[in-house]
Design a protein around this nucleic acid. Sequence first.
DNA 1: CTCGTAGTACGCCATCTGTCAAACTACGAG
DNA 2: CTCGTAGTTTGACAGATGGCGTACTACGAG
Lengths: 121, 121
Amino acid sequence: MPSPEASTPPLAPGRALDHPGRDAIRLEGVLHALSDPMRLRVVRVLAEREATCSDVELPVSKSTCTHHFRVLREAGVISQVYRGTAKVNCLRRDDLDALFPGLLDSVLAAASEQDQRAGAP
Amino acid sequence: MPSPEASTPPLAPGRALDHPGRDAIRLEGVLHALSDPMRLRVVRVLAEREATCSDVELPVSKSTCTHHFRVLREAGVISQVYRGTAKVNCLRRDDLDALFPGLLDSVLAAASEQDQRAGAP
DNA sequence: CTCGTAGTACGCCATCTGTCAAACTACGAG
DNA sequence: CTCGTAGTTTGACAGATGGCGTACTACGAG
């Protein structure tokens, strides 16, 4: 890895994953995707920074992890692109905000607040 | 039924149902409850007016209907009180808005917009 | 070329979910 | 008291879901 900083990594498309178009994203599907604690945790991480599957720490096996990321992708919540051997995940903020204004933000805010309430008993 | 209009109906408590306290309402549970099309439909009706189970028209059997209302109640999304032989359902707007500000409104707005998009192809 | 790392694919399994029908309870009207 | 309406309970069932391990593929580093 020659001088990794500031250099755009390979970003090889390898093979494109199948993402639903903006118009194919359904509210019910998004809510369902967000209703799982593991997936909600993933989304909260991705709201702050993009991340590969493995640097979102989840207390589940690799295959289960793959499963959750796929559910999120198929629901239209995240996008995934290969970069070398890694896969980079991003929140599809633009699409979600366009389709369901305010929804993502209120879910994220609600999750944070719920955390805080739990943290201060 | 003597002059039914303007008279508060019996409103007999019959037997109180078990509702989670405000602090027991979990975001994941609420999102899960809202992620079913039938239940989302119920919530959208209740956002406009309170209603008995039977005057929310659902294309499912009575027992399935009972099931969905129970899921909503146990998730903390609605409250149910007996009034005579009927059961009146209300959105727990105050609790939801206090816990998850903006969430309910954005879900309702998103549902409406999704409807409109589907209605105008 | 070879190796290690990242992630996928495939079964398998237990549990949960949505659905129904049928039998039952609760209450108001007569 | 009797009847009809509203809703519950129970049991069944098919399908989805979340979880695992193992075997596999793909790519970058040496």
